[in-house]
């Protein structure tokens, strides 16, 4: 059994903290080589059968270095394939996907529907479509793989504020899905979509908290080094208290991250609420990081803004914060009423 700490150490060695936004293509190759993509599928399908906490550790560490590699959509697609009971050549698909043949998918937002057996979709949040052969598409009652080079499938790279991820808008204009590429249908498809939304939320939460930790470290180091009024800024209590509050929020959110990652009974709403908490903490940390850096924090040459832009993108991905808060409130009301 692989220990979480071993995974963390391996990740930190492969992606050292001082190299933010490491080259995407090299990272991607390295991750496939290190076997990260095969960590979740069960052993009988050729995977390592590791738990959700293992992939959470990877997303956490990749968040720390603002990784640009498409490990998140790839892992979601692999999960979907592993769960499929109708995909032909499932083992073959998993093997290819685990060795680096990218299948991407949308990280939330946009619209997709099935009309007369054909999929029409506008997916404005699909990472690394340039590197991928297929996109995993969810519509009510259907989950299917669609080749990105198929007819009536267009992908167009989007210019984002956050440059640590490459996002594409993928559009499908009445594309009839290939029968052999269908992953799930009917209720099974909807259940799978719901489960993967939970996985996406958990992964984004981990990404947020890895990044938030790095942003705090960056800020504290800066405050220790920068001198004004003949003393390091880190000596001023007003700044110390703000850093302490940031640390408190991050450490507490992290405790919830690991608790829900390890809890098989956590609902999709639990994971969405966790993602929202983590993204709001990340947002707060990066806002404060820029403010405490002063003018240098607003310059392109400093790293602060990279974290802030990723935090804001994470906040917008995988469902809106207000919706998750509301869903969590509704869920708690129902739980209490039925207790």
């Amino acid at each position: 059994m692989i220990e979480l700490s071993e995974l963390r150490d391996a990740a930190q060695k492969a992606f050292p903290a001082d190299q933010l936004v490491p080259d995407r293509d090299k990272s991607w190759e390295l991750m496939a080589e290190m076997g990260w993509l095969m960590m979740r599928p069960p052993e009988e399908l050729g995977g390592l059968g590791l738990g959700r906490d293992a992939s959470t550790m990877i997303h956490f560490e990749l968040g720390r270095v603002l990784s640009s590699a498409p490990v998140l959509p790839a892992m979601l697609a692999i999960e979907a394939i592993a769960a499929s009971d109708c995909l032909a050549d499932k083992e073959d698909w998993i093997e290819r996907a685990c060795t680096g043949e990218l299948i991407t998918t949308s990280l939330g937002g946009g619209s997709a529907q099935l009309e007369g057996g054909a999929i029409s979709a506008k997916l404005p949040n699909v990472p690394d479509a340039d590197l991928a052969g297929h996109v995993l598409v969810f519509v009510p009652g259907l989950v299917a793989l669609v080749p990105l080079d198929a007819q009536h499938v267009e992908s167009c790279e989007l210019e984002m504020w956050d440059c640590s991820r490459r996002l594409f808008e993928v559009t499908l204009d009445a594309v009839t899905p290939d029968e052999t590429l269908v992953i799930a249908r009917g209720d099974a498809a909807d259940a799978l979509a719901d489960r993967l939304l939970g996985e996406l939320s958990l992964a984004l939460a981990a990404d947020c908290l890895g990044g938030a930790n790095a942003a705090i470290e960056l800020t504290v180091e800066f405050l220790k080094m920068r001198k004004q009024f003949d003393r390091p800024l880190a000596m001023f209590q007003v700044l110390k208290h703000r850093c302490a509050d940031l640390k408190t929020q991050v450490v507490s959110a992290e405790a919830l991250l690991w608790s829900r990652a390890g809890n098989a009974d956590a609902t999709t709403t639990d994971l969405g609420a966790l993602k929202t908490l983590a993204a709001e903490v990340y947002q707060f940390v990066t806002e404060e990081a820029i403010q405490m850096h002063g003018g240098i924090g607003l310059t392109d040459e400093h790293q602060c803004h990279l974290f802030m832009k990723r935090a804001m993108l994470n906040l917008a991905m995988g469902g809106m914060p207000d919706e998750w808060h509301e869903a969590a409130g509704r869920q708690a009301l129902v739980d209490i009423a039925s207790a």
Binding site: T276, D322, H325, A328, G329, L333
Partner: peptide, 12 residues
């Protein structure tokens, strides 16, 4: 929705 949000946020 406003109250539900406050409540959900608190529970988390």
């Amino acid at each position: 929705p406003g109250i539900l949000r406050d409540f959900g946020k608190l529970v988390t």
